[in-house]
Design a protein around this nucleic acid. Structure first.
Lengths: 350, 350
DNA sequence: ACGGTCCATGAAACCGGTTACAGCGAGATG
DNA sequence: CATCTCGCTGTAACCGGTTTCATGGACCGT
């Protein structure tokens, strides 16, 4: 009998481990073992405990468990609150987020998006991480965040950064081969017969921005194409910045016949500026972007772009994090290869 | 003096409340009060405790705190693992996620994305919520998830669902005025002089899908336009589904001169199908979408659409959740108004 | 000098798990 | 039969906070 679960709130019958132990006539320790170390407990006892647990709806309390073991199985997601710079608000990172969550999930880790409760000290995130017993932390490039990042890297909390280099005993990063990708882009444009290849860059203080510019310059040199500073315009990684930058490029003395844009969002802006100027893509100007976010495929005539391995980001981050959590030293940085995706914006015929 | 922070691992000096209490010559209880109930403790003691806390880098352990208080200040995010249906993977929900996180953050709540550790029972989420002492839960429409949802609504955990109706003592939902929005769309098309207005719907088993279809039908009736079943094609809320649906519409005996598409992603697909068929938007066929996700503004000729109040979703959800957490009964459902955003796809001249 | 408030604090139990260590009984071994 | 192993289980301390309740002292009015 004992229909303890009389009321509809049966679900809320808060059963503790001692309660369950009492019902089974064993000690709490044994119950604990049933869940954490099943093989050491006698098969019959084990079955009975499991059965009873199911009956009364016993669920271990994770807070208590974390308190005792110091493992939370949670990874913190550092969310830049400065919405003006490319943070999680950027479509690229939104697409990454999914992959990251999936990869972590697969390894049994939860993802905690911390409330950045107003306090904006350098160590706000380290503090948050420690308060919550986070097993690890993921953060993305955030321009001027260095102090925060350094604190984290030094704190000993396993930490992987996306796109921004960081090294420490328990800190590493994953990024795309930005230099190589940019070179692919320029080479492709050159192979299409373009000669005056301009570029729209990301903000100079961001790592991807700087590296993609570097790749652009390197490949120009290799191809023995002239480097013209007036053919370099800085954007902000978003549509409007790309549009403005393109307008500036169109006003230069010698109009470019191609432009490598260091981000798809900006590239979409560039397309718009070009069409507003009454010019055609790719006939008058060929465009190659970077990222391969969803819009790239959707905007006519189809944006040729350097695709980043977005699922790879999440997977690599999760893998590095978990290995560090399990005691390993920080693995070397992962530089993910990029691939050229050819669409209409750089080729006459699709 | 006292450069306690000699070693780099100073940050890791795990200070407990008893340690801090000892250093200050007070009891743990007092220290606890300093942080939770500052006004009841003597000003001098308080200052001293705070100072010492800063010196030794004391941080309260949230797990211990949660264990004792049963409040975690965490809200769970239910993440549909079934990637075939419109879940968090859909751009619309990605845009919502930002707002939700921000709104919750502002109220001091963290957002926990739970690992759905393989177990696919109806009550998996209730169990997860209880294990982690979640203060509340947010979930999105997920088609066939009803059992899960019901479990949650009955469990007593404060819970707000996005887009899918649910009612319970601690459960409510927020959604857009899908019927009204659809009617706005149809009316707009009619005002542009269109007569044969078709529609591409979301999957019939989704709530927004059904409601937008209903709005379409209602407005047709009101305008005394004929309702033709062959002018209704079902999509999947994604680009490819919209494209396929549009192709079917183009094959009907009487070709429509306008189409209301119940989602921007699908609308983009529709645009593509139309252009592939050698037709022009808006000259031959006018298109109105739903959602106003980012691409809507980017894809030529600009997608006229029914905008959902994305920030409103997050804000309303957070508000409802927090009020329930604080003891209030479930507030009534919030139906957010939609607004018509006119772009090139429905008007000859922008 | 005395009883009553009020303020500030401390002692100790409690939240719900984990785990080091000790103990016990059964079977194997000499 | 004594002893040793081994498999299984229980005791109790511990994780790091919170909170109830009791208490001690300062201050007040009479």
């Amino acid at each position: 009998m004992k229909p303890v679960t009389a009321r509809c709130d049966s679900v809320w019958s808060v059963a503790t481990i001692r309660e369950l132990a009492r019902l089974c006539g064993v000690s709490p320790a044994t119950v604990s073992r049933v869940f954490n170390n099943p093989e050491v407990v006698n098969a019959k006892t084990r079955e009975q405990v499991l059965r009873t647990a199911r009956q009364i709806g016993y669920l271990p309390n994770e807070s208590a468990r974390t308190l005792a073991t110091k493992k939370s199985f949670m990874v913190g997601l550092l969310w830049d609150t400065d919405h003006r710079r490319p943070g999680w608000r950027h479509p690229f990172f939104q697409e990454i987020l999914i992959g990251l969550k999936t990869a972590l999930s697969g390894r049994g880790y939860h993802l905690l998006m911390l409330a950045t409760s107003g306090e904006h000290t350098d160590d706000a995130y380290v503090r948050a991480a420690r308060r919550h017993n986070l097993d690890g932390v993921v953060m993305i490039d955030s321009g001027t965040w260095d102090p925060s990042l350094r604190h984290l890297a030094e704190s000993g909390v396993p930490c992987v950064s996306l796109d921004r280099p960081v090294q420490g005993p328990k800190a590493t990063y994953v990024t795309s081969d930005n230099v190589g990708g940019a070179r692919q882009a320029v080479r492709h444009l050159h192979e299409q017969g373009r000669q005056a290849i301009a570029t729209i860059t990301g903000p100079a203080h961001t790592r991807p921005g700087a590296e993609r510019l570097q790749g652009y310059q390197e490949e120009l040199a290799l191809l023995r194409l002239p480097y013209r500073p007036e053919h370099v315009a800085e954007g902000d990684f978003y549509v409007t910045g790309g549009e403005a930058a393109m307008r500036r490029l169109l006003e230069t003395d010698e109009r470019p016949d191609a432009v490598f844009v260091a981000g798809d969002e900006m590239a979409v802006g560039a397309l718009r500026a070009i069409s507003e100027a009454g010019l055609k893509v790719p006939e008058d100007i060929a465009v190659v972007g970077f990222d391969d976010i969803e819009v790239a495929a959707l905007v006519p005539p189809g944006l040729t772009t350097i695709a980043q391995d977005k699922d790879g980001f999440g997977a690599a981050a999760a893998e590095a994090l978990v290995s560090m959590i399990n005691g390993a030293d920080a693995p070397p940085a992962r530089i993910l290869p990029t691939t050229l995706v050819v669409r209409g914006s750089s080729t006459r015929a699709i």
